[in-house]
Amino acid sequence: MSHSAPTTDTARRKPQSLLGRIADPSFNVLSISVLLLAMAAIIYPLYFIVIASISDPNQIQQGRVWFIPRGVTLDGYRTLLANDAMLRGFANSVMYTSLGTLISVSIILATGYALSRRDMPGRNLFMILFVITMFFDGGLIARYLVVKQLGMLDTIWAVILPGAVGVWNLIIARTFFEQNVPNELREAAQLDGSNDFNFFFRIALPMTKPLIVLMAMTHMVAYWNSYFDAMIYLNDESLYPLQLVLRNVLIQSQASASMDTGSIDSYAAAQRLGELIKYAMIVVSTVPLLCIFPFMQKYFVKGAALGALK
């Protein structure tokens, strides 16, 4: 009788283990297949834009360009790089992105830490005021009047300051500090003679590297791709960011093609150049971020996961 129970248990476990051995490979194959399809759906459009930017637009319209470029030409890139406004816009975008990210991340980290302190007077009131701005907005006219009254029209601050603080990122920062920087640690630091500023810069910030990278990447992408604020608040073309310069170049190329009253060949050439410029613009505006992201991916993924968990 002493041997019957283990034999029965073993017999019962065999079908389950056999089913597990069958299910696991099937699940792995299914998961890998889905991931490969998702990867192809994400990577192929980017790859197609790159090869389309150096391919003959006629070949693209005829559906002959799939995996390799045809009728290779660099006319689109030559046109963009020959434009002095584009180089100036690239430098402006680098300045806006660097300075704007520094200001935004600094404000969000400092404000998020302050709101995470339970002993801060008026903490809940400030949080309510911040959250209200997520649901109620004065509109474009009100924002324009505020920027005008502050004397920021036609200055770099009109592009940087109006969107410097995102309330959603502020909530993530506050929650991160609450969950990862315990109050007991601050009390221990105070017993060792540390003040609030010393604790924030020497203890709290080094513990939030994933959060800092997450905030930095979010704002870098936002500032780099932003053009609407510049279009509204800037009249001086020397201050235009890259995205707005590229937009104007594309509009001008399309307008020149539509206004061309010459021969059919010249009209077709203008249309062809406009298509090349369109694809080249996407590549030029995307490459800088693609070059930076791999070096920050580890901290970015960790910070995003922590924000999701908290």
Rank of each mutant, 00 (worst) to 15 (best):
A23S: 06
L115S: 03
S106F: 10
D260P: 00
P182H: 08
I107G: 01
Y267I: 13
A269K: 10
M259T: 11
V165Q: 05
L273R: 12
N195R: 00
I43N: 02
L273W: 08
A189N: 02
I292Q: 05
Q190N: 12
S226L: 06
L80T: 01
L289G: 06
F126N: 01
T101K: 08
R117E: 14
Y47F: 03
I212N: 05
D137C: 07
T73L: 03
D265H: 09
G139N: 07
A304F: 14
F177K: 02
V283M: 08
V301W: 05
Q190L: 03
F67V: 11
S266Q: 14
E184A: 10
N183M: 13
F48M: 10
S33M: 12
T133E: 04
L81T: 09
S104I: 00
L205P: 00
V221P: 10
N183G: 13
A255M: 15
A280V: 04
M217E: 05
Q252T: 14
I172T: 01
G76P: 05
W66A: 12
K209Q: 13
P288D: 09
F199W: 02
K278F: 12
A308R: 10
Q59R: 11
I203Y: 04
D24R: 12
L153I: 11
F177Y: 08
Q179Y: 12
A189I: 07
M259I: 08
N83L: 09
G20I: 14
T218A: 15
F176C: 06
